[in-house]
Lab assay of single mutants.
Amino acid sequence: QVATSTVRILGMTCQSCVKSIEDRISNLKGIISMKVSLEQGSATVKYVPSVVCLQQVCHQIGDMGFEASIAE
């Protein structure tokens, strides 16, 4: 089973930030795809909930120095 959710990301300033986040999160087990939008300050994450949760994704992004939260 696959889920798609949006994560809000604060602190991104350039495409390099976007690429860094996409590269790191895409390597997590259970992540199918991730598309980060600098303009919208968010990311669309396609993932397998039984393998990885959005809290883990937000935590990983937080470790990179950005502020991440699950969009309502």
Rank of each mutant, 00 (worst) to 15 (best):
C53N: 14
V7P: 00
V48F: 14
T4Y: 09
A68G: 03
P49N: 05
L10N: 10
V2R: 02
V2A: 07
S16M: 13
S26D: 02
C53H: 10
V18T: 06
Q40Y: 13
E67L: 11
D63G: 08
N27Y: 07
K19D: 11
K19R: 14
E22D: 01
F66T: 02
G30P: 04
G65H: 03
Q40F: 12
Q1P: 14
L38N: 00
Q56T: 13
F66P: 02
V52E: 01
C17Y: 04
I25C: 05
I32D: 00
M34A: 07
I21E: 02
G62I: 15
V52M: 07
G11K: 05
C58K: 12
F66N: 01
R8W: 14
R24A: 11
C14W: 04
A68Q: 01
L28K: 02
S33M: 08
S42P: 04
V57S: 01
V2F: 11
E22Q: 08
Q40P: 04
S42Y: 10
M64F: 04
V48N: 14
V48G: 02
E72M: 09
G41H: 14
S20E: 15
S69R: 11
T4L: 11
I32H: 04
G62V: 14
R24S: 10
G11T: 03
V48P: 00
D23H: 14
I21A: 02
R8F: 13
C14P: 01
E72Q: 12
K29D: 12
C53P: 10
K46R: 08
C53W: 08
C14F: 04
I70R: 04
G30V: 07
S69L: 08
P49L: 06
I70F: 08
R8A: 08
Q60T: 14
P49E: 06
Q40A: 13
R24V: 09
G11W: 05
E72S: 12
R24C: 06
V36K: 00
V45M: 06
Q40D: 08
K35E: 08
L38M: 06
M12C: 05
K46L: 11
V18F: 03
M64C: 03
E72T: 12
M12H: 00
S42F: 10
T44E: 11
L28R: 02
A68N: 03
S33F: 08
C58R: 10
C58W: 07
A71Q: 14
Q56R: 09
F66G: 01
Q56P: 01
G30T: 05
S42Q: 11
M64W: 03
K35C: 07
R8N: 14
I21M: 02
I31N: 00
T13V: 13
V2M: 09
G65E: 03
I25M: 07
A68M: 06
C14A: 03
S42D: 07
M64P: 03
S33P: 00
I32T: 02
I31K: 00
V18N: 02
A43H: 03
I21Q: 01
I31M: 03
A43W: 04
A43T: 01
I61S: 02
V18M: 05
I9M: 00
V57K: 02
L10R: 15
C53I: 08
I70G: 04
S37D: 11
L38Q: 03
S42G: 06
A68L: 05
E72I: 12
D23I: 10
Y47E: 01
A3D: 07
V48A: 08
L38F: 12
S42T: 12
A3F: 14
N27W: 06
V2P: 07
C17W: 05
H59F: 14
S50H: 10
G41A: 14
G11L: 06
K19V: 10
I9P: 05
Q55L: 13
E72L: 09
V2T: 12
S50P: 03
V57W: 04
A3T: 12
I25L: 07
G11C: 05
K35Q: 10
G41K: 12
A71P: 13
N27S: 14
Q56G: 04
C53S: 15
I70W: 07
I32L: 11
V45Y: 04
Q56A: 12
A3E: 12
M34Y: 04
A3P: 01
K35S: 09
V51I: 13
V18L: 05
K46F: 08
V7T: 00
S20W: 06
R24H: 11
I61F: 04
T44N: 08
T44P: 02
V18Y: 03
C17G: 03
G11S: 04
L28T: 06
R8I: 14
Q60R: 08
E22V: 09
D63R: 15
C14N: 06
C17V: 04
V57Y: 04
I9S: 00
E67A: 12
G30Y: 05
G30H: 03
T44A: 10
V36P: 00
I31A: 00
S42N: 12
Q55M: 12
R8P: 05
S16L: 10
Q60C: 05
K46Y: 08
A68F: 06
Q1F: 07
S37N: 12
M12D: 00
V51S: 05
V51G: 01
V57D: 00
I70S: 08
V52T: 06
T6K: 11
T6V: 14
V52F: 04
V2N: 05
S50T: 12
D23V: 09
M64N: 03
V52K: 03
S26L: 10
A3R: 13
E72C: 07
M64R: 01
S50D: 10
V7G: 02
N27M: 13
G30L: 06
L38E: 00
S26M: 13
I70H: 06
E39A: 13
F66A: 03
Q55K: 13
G62L: 11
T44F: 12
K19Q: 12
C14D: 06
A68H: 03
L38T: 01
K29R: 13
Q15P: 09
V7L: 15
S20F: 06
P49G: 04
I25K: 00
I70C: 14
Q1D: 15
G65C: 04
C53R: 13
S50G: 10
V36D: 00
I21V: 05
M34V: 15
V48M: 14
D23Q: 11
V57F: 03
T6I: 14
N27C: 06
Y47W: 08
E22A: 06
V7D: 04
K19A: 08
K46T: 15
Q60A: 15
C17F: 04
S42E: 12
L54T: 01
K29W: 12
G62N: 15
G11I: 06
Q15V: 10
C14K: 01
M12S: 00
F66M: 03
Q55C: 13
L54S: 02
I9L: 04
V7H: 00
L28V: 08
S33A: 07
A43R: 02
A71D: 13
V18E: 06
Q40N: 12
A43G: 13
Q1I: 09
K46D: 06
A43P: 03
M64L: 14
C58S: 09
E67D: 10
L10E: 10
Q56V: 10
C53T: 15
Q56H: 10
G62M: 15
Q1S: 10
K19I: 09
D63C: 07
V51E: 12
L38Y: 09
T44Q: 09
G41T: 06
I25T: 03
T4M: 10
E67R: 13
Q40E: 11
V36Y: 01
T4N: 06
P49H: 07
T44R: 13
L54Q: 01
T44Y: 13
G30N: 01
V2W: 14
P49T: 08
I21T: 00
M34N: 00
A68D: 03
T13D: 05
S16N: 12
M64A: 05
I31C: 04
D63Y: 10
A3W: 14
V18R: 05
E39Q: 13
